[in-house]
């Protein structure tokens, strides 16, 4: 696994191919849109999806924490798919989140799916998290307060190769904004050419597609007109 460096405002950020953003100088790791317990939320609507999504997501997060040993772990909102999610979390998964909160400073940033902090779980809650030149939040609001690092949009990019079109979840970044891919096992994607994403970035923005061992960097494709 090789993370790609991204230099912004004199700071070096690392884009991990597992879908996390790491700021080594601050010993901070951020993931977005965990959508824990999405499977059980769908089950209530008659879609009995495999109930292993939270476990899978936490497995991936655990690997990342071992790799980077951050002091601060930021979950950039939509950490649970719905407000009832924390209550449905399996005992083993709840215990794992507890262990993470003991070993790191765990910050739950509010999202549109989980506006209130997760009930009964360890960690602190916040609307946003500012540090150095960066503001970490769920949705983009504006860059007046600093470089925005956010999630919410589940970016995914397609590139045409000689083996056909390849689609991957990705980071999107320009000088003022960094958009993280969704980290949850059942979190789908929105194409980066969608105006909701493309409209946020300036010409020259880049996408970083997640690979198995590294990320792959391409220019942000032209915006698709609505």
């Amino acid at each position: 696994m090789t993370a790609a460096p991204l230099h912004l405002a004199g700071e070096r950020l690392m884009l991990d191919p597992a879908g996390a953003l790491v700021w080594p100088a601050a010993r901070l790791l951020a993931v977005a849109d965990l959508h824990l317990e999405k499977g059980s939320a769908q089950a209530a609507r008659g879609m009995l999806l495999p109930p292993y999504d939270s476990r899978t997501t936490l497995d991936r997060l655990g690997l990342l924490l071992r790799r980077w040993s951050p002091a601060i772990v930021l979950a950039l909102g939509d950490s649970f798919h719905d407000p009832g999610g924390p209550g449905r979390l399996g005992a083993a998964e709840a215990a794992r989140l507890g262990a993470i909160a003991r070993a790191h400073r765990l910050v739950w940033i509010a999202g549109n799916h989980d506006p209130a902090p997760p009930a009964g779980l360890a960690g602190e809650a916040a609307g946003a998290f500012a540090a150095g030149p960066f503001v970490f939040r769920h949705e983009p609001e504006g860059t007046a307060g600093g470089i925005e690092i956010f999630g919410h949009l589940h970016p995914k990019a397609a590139v045409a190769s000689r083996g056909g079109t390849l689609r991957r979840a990705c980071f999107v970044a320009d000088a003022r904004r960094v958009l993280l891919p969704a980290f949850g096992a059942y979190a789908g994607g929105l194409d980066v050419t969608d105006p909701a994403i493309a409209g946020l970035f300036r010409p020259g923005a880049r996408v970083f597609l997640l690979g198995q061992e590294r990320v792959f960097c391409f220019p942000l494709p032209a915006r698709r007109r609505a």
Binding site: V159, S161, R162, G163, G211, Q212, E213
Partner: peptide, 23 residues
């Protein structure tokens, strides 16, 4: 030749790397 379809995460990664290098 040139019309092959290559699939699987590892092959896809190889294709992505190739494209990235081309660019």
């Amino acid at each position: 030749i040139g019309r092959e379809s290559v699939r699987g995460a590892a092959t896809e990664d190889a294709l992505l790397a190739e494209l990235e290098a081309e660019l």
